[in-house]
């Protein structure tokens, strides 16, 4: 696999510009690391659309149906019990348990999908060992660029990044 160049920025505006202009400047932006979400860059990086919401919806609805089914089976079939003349399938009273458990399981499904799509847990990410990385969770903006094989190209890219305002540029193994 190719090596990466990590370019560190302090200014958000210049960083966004460097990320956007990558195609013109002939380098390929692999990923960006920022201390807070920058939605405007997400589209540039052509990530796959997240499936979190459909998964949550399906998980929640199935759980709610299962919970209602359990209530129905136990109260109307397995242990029918006349309580104050109410119907055995007392739907108004059976609404709240499916509602609460449906929401809980939807949330759990969402979390699981989040871990999967964010590729977590990944405690041994080699990125963490790189010198220029640590600021990305604090106050720095880091651009990861596919490192050109050719030494001349590499120095050209490095030059362009410095022109954009990168304060340091590191080469790392991915």
């Amino acid at each position: 696999m190719t090596q990466l160049l990590l370019a560190e920025f302090t200014d958000q505006r210049r960083f966004v510009e460097a990320a956007r202009r990558g195609r013109d400047a002939q380098y390929r932006v692999v990923e960006v690391y920022t201390p807070y979400p920058l939605e405007e860059l997400h589209d540039e990086l052509s990530h796959r659309e997240s499936r979190i919401r459909p998964v949550m919806f399906v998980g929640g609805v199935l759980t709610a149906a299962l919970a209602y089914g359990l209530e129905y089976y136990s109260a109307a079939i397995n242990y029918p019990y006349n309580s104050g003349g109410r119907p055995l399938d007392a739907w108004p009273a059976f609404m709240l348990v499916p509602f609460a458990t449906g929401i809980l399981v939807a949330a759990v499904c969402g979390f699981a999908t989040f871990l999967f799509e964010a590729r977590l847990p990944y405690l041994s990410n080699p990125l963490f060992a790189a010198d220029g990385y640590g600021g990305a969770t604090q106050d720095r903006f880091v651009l990861a660029i596919e490192c050109p094989q050719d030494g001349d190209d590499r120095s050209a890219v490095t030059k362009r990044l410095s022109d954009f305002g990168a304060i340091s540029i590191q080469q790392v193994e991915p």
């Binding site: 104050g84 003349g85 109410r86 108004p92 009273a93 609404m95």
Partner: peptide
């Protein structure tokens, strides 16, 4: 409105 129906249904 659901809660109102539920309370009245429950009290009967």
């Amino acid at each position: 409105d659901f809660m109102a129906v539920l309370v009245i249904w429950y009290g009967d």
